[in-house]
């Protein structure tokens, strides 16, 4: 029983971090209907940034996540302006291929700059824990999850309660109408993409503290993110939160009750199972198929 509770707690803590990591991805999908395969590469980039600054200065890596956020915002803006917007205009599907290319090239650059060894930021609390009875709650996971949940709430408020959020939704729904109420659609789209990228700032910082990573880790992480958003229904922020919890718990249960090496297969098995059995995701409703063409 204790083991189960312990497993659930660990799974949910990880889930909180997965949710933040997936939020930007699902936001971009919701608006542009593209799979941004470079999203996880941005997370790993932010992790390297955090680790690097921590290694140089010793500043707390999770605090550095706050610095990494605007840095990644800028990175996302530039990526959108130089690549994504251009390719997306010409060919919707090719934008996904372009993002894949960015991911591959980025991992090459990261290898050149930071090498291919496994890295991890190890602040004082990286292997200490809070103990409640016989339940162990690792400090690093707790802080990272707390930060992630706070940022997610912030993102939710930003999208729901501010003009930026309303403008983003407006662009996603009807570009012409958005233009007609005076929204600069191109700029809003760039902001949206940059906000999506900004979420990788803290996501990467959390990654650098909790996991070991190297440039090609982004393949593992994109797998997890894809699983989260497929579980929750592509494009849904609330769905991503649920999907993240399910995946976090699922992986932890597999790791503890079966074997660690099988835990890595969980996301992919879930992706394929969900797409065969319930492609709209756990929460999503069946979309009103086609007919919209007419």
């Amino acid at each position: 029983m204790t083991l189960l509770v312990q497993t659930l707690i660990l799974g949910l803590l990880i889930g909180g971090i997965y949710a933040l990591m997936s939020s930007g991805f699902t936001l971009v999908f919701g608006v542009m209907k593209i799979i941004n395969l470079a999203h996880a590469a941005m997370i790993v980039l932010a992790a390297f940034f955090t680790w690097w600054v921590w290694d140089l200065t010793g500043i707390d890596p999770l605090l550095l996540g706050v610095v990494a956020t605007p840095v990644m915002y800028g990175f996302g803006w530039v990526l959108y302006k130089t690549v994504i917007a251009r390719v997306h205009r010409a060919d919707h599907e090719l934008a996904m291929v372009a993002s894949f290319a960015v991911a591959i090239a980025a991992s090459g650059v990261m290898s050149l700059v930071w090498g291919t060894e496994l890295r991890a930021a190890t602040p004082s609390y990286f292997n200490t824990s809070l103990e409640i009875g016989s339940i162990v709650v690792p400090h690093a996971q707790l802080y990272a999850c707390g930060g992630a949940v706070a940022l997610l709430l912030g993102l939710y408020v930003l999208l729901r309660r501010t003009f930026i959020g309303r403008a983003i939704k407006a662009c996603a729904e009807n570009r012409d109408s958005a233009e007609l109420v005076g929204i600069n659609v191109e700029r809003t789209m760039a902001q949206m993409f940059a906000i999506g990228a900004a979420t990788t700032g803290f996501g990467g910082a959390a990654l650098s503290v909790i996991y070991q990573f190297f440039p090609e880790s982004h393949f593992v992480w994109i797998g997890r993110i894809l699983c989260v958003v497929i579980l929750g229904g592509l494009g849904s922020l609330a769905g991503a939160a649920l999907g993240a919890a399910v995946l976090g718990v699922g992986e932890t249960i597999t790791a503890i009750y079966i074997d660690t090496q099988w835990a890595t297969t969980v996301p992919y098995i879930l992706i394929i199972a969900i797409l065969v059995l319930r492609p709209q995701g756990l929460l999503g409703e069946r979309m009103r198929a086609d007919g919209a063409h007419a």
Partner: peptide
Amino acid sequence: QVPQQGGLFGGL
């Protein structure tokens, strides 16, 4: 301009 039919942002 009042756009053609369907000009409201339905999800908002």
